[in-house]
Structure formats: C-alpha cells, structure tokens
Design a protein around this nucleic acid. Structure first.
Lengths: 341, 341
DNA sequence: TTGTACGCGTTATCAA
DNA sequence: TTGATAACGCGTACAA
C-alpha cells in the first residue's frame, strides 16, 4: 500500500506523475503516455506497470497541470438568469448531461437578471479559461461586448447576441411563436387581449411581442388597443400584474404571458378574484415547464424543447472555430393547447 | 489600444502577467503584487501604471496559473441526484449564491441517482482539485469511501456519510420530521396509513421511516399494518404507486410521501380515480418545494429550508480543517399544514 | 520599493 | 520504445 508514503512525502497533497514514475521506475513521459491512452507507442507490460502504480497510489491526473500545459480547461460556464425557473433548470440539466458525454464540466452561475452580476460573473468565467461560455438569457452589458471580441466561444441561448456581436445562437423562432399564440387566441374568439412580456432589451421578448402584435394587426385589430406590460419573468411579478389588471374597470379577457411562471401568478390572481379560466380570462404561458404536466395541466402554452438545448449547444462547442461563427440552431416549438384558452 | 498587439504576439491567447509587465515596464513580480492587492509594498504611482496596463490589455488573471502555484482551485463541486426536482434546484441556487460571495465557482453535476455515475463524477471532481465536494443525496459507493480518506473537504447534505466515513453533515432531523408527520396524521384521525419512502440505502429516507413508524407504534398501531413502499423520488414513480395502491381492494386512506414530487404523482392518481383529497385520501409530502405556494397550495408537507443550506455549507467550507471533522448543522423543519390532510 | 528566479503538474518535443 | 527537458501562468522567497 504505497498510498501512505506518497501522501507523507507530499505533505498530504495528491500524488503526481512524478510519484507514479518513481513508484514504477519509469519516466514521467511514459507515465503520461500510458495514462493518456497513447498505448500505440508503449510496450504492453510497461503500460501495465504504470497502471498498477497509478492505482496503488490512488493517482488522479491534475486537471490544473493539464490545463496549464494545454492552455485550455475542460470547463464550460453556463450563466442562467434564474435557476428556480423550471425551464432554466431543465436547460441546465440538459447541458450538463450533454457535456458529461464529452468529458466536460459545467460551472453554473446565476445572474439573477442583474447586469452588474452578469459582468462580475463574466470576469470570473474568463479567469477560468473555459472551453466556452454559454449564456441563457444574456443581457447587453459592457463586459459582454468586450469579451465577445475574444477567441473564446460564446453561445447564446434564447436571447440573441446584441447586434454588433457575432456568435452562435440556439433557440426557437420567437416571432413565429408570438404569431402562433395570437392566431390561437383570435381563432378562439378571445378579445380584450393583454400581453405581459419580458424585458424589452431581451431579443426573445421583443420578437415574441412583435410577432404577437403583428398577427393581431393582420386580423384588423389595432395593436395599440392591446394592453402591453413589461414585466420580470417571475410568479410574483405575474401575480402583481394580474391583481392590477383584474381590478381595472375593463379588465382584459385574455393574457399572453412572457413565461409560465408569470402565468402561474396570473392564474392565482384570477382565482382569488373569482374570475373563471378560461370563461372569464384566457391565459397563455410560454416554455411549457416540465412540471406543467403534473401541476398545471390547465395551462395553454408554447412548448420549448428544453432538453434539446443541451445537445445543440454541446455540438456547437465541439465544432472547430465556433467562436466568431454566426451559426444558428433553431429548434421547433409547439403550441400546447389545454383548458386555459 | 494595446489589445491587438498582445493578442497577436500570443497567437490569440489571453494576455499574461508578462505582457502586462512589458507593457508598463515593470517586473512580473510587481504586477502580481499590485493585482493581488499587496498595495502596502508598492509605490502608489507604480500601482497605477500596472492597473492601467492591465486594463488596456484586457488582462484577466488565469485561475489555472494561480491554482497550480497554490495547488488549490477556487472551485466547489456539487453533486445532485436530480436537478428537475425543485428542491435540488433551490439548494443548488442557494449554494451557488453563497459561494459567489466568497469568490468560489460551483461545478454542478447530476448523478441521476446512479451509483456508477456518481463514481465517475467523483473521479472527474478529484481531477479538478476542488476546494470541496458537496454531495446532495450521496450514495454509498466504493469511490466515495476511497476518496473520503483524502484531505479534501467532503460535505454531505440531507443524507449522512455512510458509517465509516467521518465528514460534516448539513440537514434536518429526519427522524423527528417522520415523527411529526405521523403525529399529525394520527391527530387528525387518519387511518389506513401508507408510506412511500425513498431508497432504504439513503439515511434520510431511513430516518424518516424510522421516526414515522416509531410514532405510530407509540400510538398502539402495529407498524406492520402500515403499507411500506420503497420508491424513486419522482412524480412518475409516485403516480405509478398511486395507481397501484388506489386500485387495491382496501386502498390506503393516508399516504406519507418521500418528497413532494411523489406527492404530486399520488395526487394525480387520486384525481384520475375520482378519489377526493383529503376526504378519500390524505397526502403528506416532504420538502415544501418553492413552487407549492403557487401550484400545489393544497399540499401538507414538511418545509425544509432549502435556501439555508447554501450558507451553511459555505461556512463549513471556510472553516479550517473541515475535512475530517464530524461537524453537523441541523436546520429546523416545519410541518406546513394545508388542505390535503 | 522593485527585480530575479524557482516551482507548482502536466504533456509535447526532441533525442536516444 | 523510452527518457530528458522545456514550457504553460502565476505567486513568492530571496536578493538587490
């Protein structure tokens, strides 16, 4: 049991290639070759000796040393706006799974939708020298623009890179989704329409709004007659807006929400006010959170294939010269009609 | 704008201390001192020169170099069993937030409750030489036992370290929680009791079961008369067990679930079968997922303070010699009584 | 107050 | 097939 010795020699620090090399009487170069699977250029019995020594020492290669040598880590940083949002959690899980397959680790950071926090996290991310930086719901900040000129791969999910920046994008056709919701509401004869959309500086929100209003205009309704509210994408915000809207003299009869979280809040507000859904108020969400199938089987919403985002992003990361490429992966969405409309 | 030059010289790689040193005509040592805030031993105007040079080059220190030098990274690895479980997401977010405050990054990995995957991830984690490894819902695996002998801090959340291992633990008093649920059901006069608990090899599940049955026995009921089912902690599993239980000749009239996800599944099964809650069936969950307030306002459950886990873990990580200490942080739980009982 | 030089762990290059 | 060695970026002990 050589573990004790090595541990002692290194003052409790993990064994290194040198320890392994000494233990098996070979050079560090050979040890490295064996452990990196370059079996072609190593004698079988030599390889065996190395492997045994490594195992008896409990040796695990240091990613730090490797990274320094190769000036690249096997880390991907994912920035999300809100991990309590089911949709974000699903995307994070899907990405982590896809990265695991390629031997990459995922550092997860929460921007809480705060621009300064995003910038701080981007700086931290840069210092990690990650293989790539993935932004779910990016905000247009100074540091983002500065770093986007770097060679490091940036990938944008759901919100496109702010104009001057060229970088790969993975998401759905938000404009078409907005149109689909409008078409659905009009088809069902819903009037008194309102939209509670996400932040305007967020391309996804803007596109959905644009598509939604465009389709409504085509139907001969003045878009200016549509109540438009810019909102945070949380249940609390949705609830607040719901209470306010429903207490108006002429409350809306149909609301298109920026995401499902907002829709949950609206629903609660309607319940509290005794407004029936969809009779008194139609509600449409966005994302189709996985939990809907169990806890919100009433919610008509746009299904966004969260689990497909991870593989798409991972494959973009594996492409050569992904960095400044303007590739796009547009995933399909689907209008899921349930009883709230 | 020196950015171009440095970028060119380094073939597109990020600038280093050397680049900064050259740019300001000082030594790398001085640059390093300034950037690490050792202002005491540097002339003010010198510091200024360094800072300007660093900024004009867009220099960000490499965590790789730093880590190698100090043989320690600023990374903490968190292993979770299932990120789609609201509770896990909340804990992850809470930990990430707490770590951010201390300048640490969080690598998040999903074990999917698979022992082999946990072992693979533990190996990957070890190679990262993280500041600590945090396990939410650890499984007793060979590699876990082996690595637990290391100097590296391990922290267990929710499930205790398997017996020979000594390591800090953060969680609630699961036995007491199990007792509390039993007491509540008995007090309300519920009979025909069943428990759908998590994996037996998981200390949290065991303790809850033990406490629950213990309290029931004290009440003069034979614990053997309680239907006990070992289950995965997912909605799907809960739904499946719910269907099975409710189709029995003598279905249970009250079910204590291993977590809220199972409870959601049971609820659905009851609805589909036309069984009223709590009239026909009482349901108790566990965790009190944040989403309950909005989507499951009917669920009686044990509130576990997910957001307090992060700070508790972070402070354990900051303690000296946390590694083999057997410290414990027992957080308070609370029985949240709603309409399902 | 500033500079020189070494070593952290690894792998790629070159030489044997 | 194997070994010696340099280099990756950084922080610090020591020297100036």
């Amino acid at each position: 049991m050589g573990l004790g010795e090595a541990t002692l020699r290194n003052h409790g620090r993990p064994p290194t290639v040198i320890d392994v090399a000494e233990a098996c009487g070979l050079s560090t170069a050979t040890v490295s070759r064996v452990l990196n699977g370059l079996v072609a250029s190593v004698a079988p019995e030599t390889a065996q000796r190395v492997i045994e020594a490594a195992r008896s020492l409990g040796y695990t290669p240091s990613a730090i040393g490797r990274s320094l040598r190769q000036s690249e880590t096997r880390i991907v940083v994912l920035l999300v706006p809100d991990l309590t949002n089911d949709f974000c959690a699903d995307v994070a899980m899907s990405l982590e799974k896809a990265l695991q397959l390629g031997g990459l680790s995922m550092v997860l950071c929460n921007t809480a939708e705060k621009p300064e926090q995003q910038d701080r996290l981007l700086a931290d991310a840069e210092s990690l020298r990650p293989r790539g930086i993935v932004l779910l719901g990016a905000m247009d900040t100074p540091r983002l623009r500065a770093m986007a000129q770097t060679a490091r791969p940036f990938i944008f999910i759901n919100r496109r890179p702010p104009p001057p920046i060229k970088a790969p994008y993975v998401g759905i056709d938000n404009k078409a989704a907005g149109r689909a919701v409008a078409a659905h509401l009009l088809e069902r004869g819903h009037t008194g329409i309102a939209i509670i959309h996400g932040p305007r500086k967020n391309s996804a929100s803007r596109s959905r709004l644009e598509g939604f209003l465009g389709r409504i205009a085509e139907h001969g309704i003045d878009p200016a007659s549509v109540i438009q509210i810019e909102s945070a994408l949380t249940t609390e915000a949705g609830y607040g807006h719901g209470r306010e809207l429903l207490s108006r003299g002429q409350p809306p009869r149909a609301i298109f929400c920026g995401n499902d979280m907002i829709a949950y809040g609206i629903y609660r507000a309607a319940q509290e006010r005794g407004v029936s859904v969809p009779g008194g108020l139609a509600i449409v969400g966005f994302d189709d959170n996985g939990i809907n199938a169990w806890l919100a089987p009433w919610l008509t919403t746009i299904r966004v294939p969260a689990v497909d985002f991870g593989p798409a992003v991972a494959s973009l990361l594996n492409e050569k010269n992904t960095a400044r490429r303007e590739s796009e992966v547009i995933l399909p969405f689907e209008l899921t009609v349930r009883s709230s409309t």
